[in-house]
Amino acid sequence: MQKKVIFRGRLLPLALLAPQLAVTFVFFFWPAGQAIYQSLLREDAFGFSREFVGLENFHEVLADPNWVNAALNTLVFSSCVAGLALSLALFLAVQADKSLRGATMYRSLLIWPYAVAPAVAAVLWLFLFQPQIGLIGKGLNAIGIPWDYRLNGTHAMILVIIAAAWKQLAYNFIFFLAGLQSIPASVLEAAAIDGARPARRFWTVVFPLLSPTTFFLLVVNLTYAFFETFGIIHALTNGGPAKATETLIYKVYVDGVENLNLGQSAAQSVILMIIVIGLTAIQFRAIEKKVHY
């Protein structure tokens, strides 16, 4: 039986919804509307002169090879971060799920990185990979690999991917672990009795049963890679060298905040908004159907 609350009037439900609606309006719709408005204007930095230019900003952004470059970077960056963070977290969660000695300790340690601020995470990785002072950076150079992320774009990309994935690992780990623990032991025991080896049990029983968690994490990780990695990129590479690690969100910052080109920066954020709305819609409609709930 379902519990259903039925309101008599309209006033009370509206009043109850109002705070949430207000928050959504003030923090989502209003800024989004501002961005759309700004994207149709051309303005000097101090805001003295503005000119309505229609879709010109969009034309210029889409024709800009640097924007295309940023889009490709974002594609590489987000898929690598999501892939790496998900697969490693799953591996670690499966290991932590086994009854090991000191499992609690191991789990708590793995959760730590989530509490580290992006800038701090970036500095930690800097201390490891800096070619002159970093432990690993120095080591790589010593064994003959000319590691220098300040000049080599591929190295820079690898570095930001590792740092961003590491930061997200803990979050994924917690969810995977919870997912694993909610799989009933009876199903696994039944599979074992049928003669399925551990690897087969994992791929045919555990993995499909985990798919809701995996799907949820995939969405969260992609959003993370798109929007929340600004701090790491800013602290590690500033989008360089030569724009090798400039993602779409970073380019919005560079054009708007550094170059004070507000119109084009707003146009880029509008495009970004459209991409994200599209992505989310596709993810929820198409992929969700195949997810085993």
Binding site: P241, A242, N259
Partner: peptide, 21 residues
């Protein structure tokens, strides 16, 4: 005007040259 951006552009292109691109 906009020299901050121009300087960044010059540096980006210099980096491309140093990378051998």
């Amino acid at each position: 005007g906009g020299f901050i951006e121009i300087r960044n552009i010059i540096q980006e292109e210099m980096e491309r040259a140093f990378q051998g691109q």
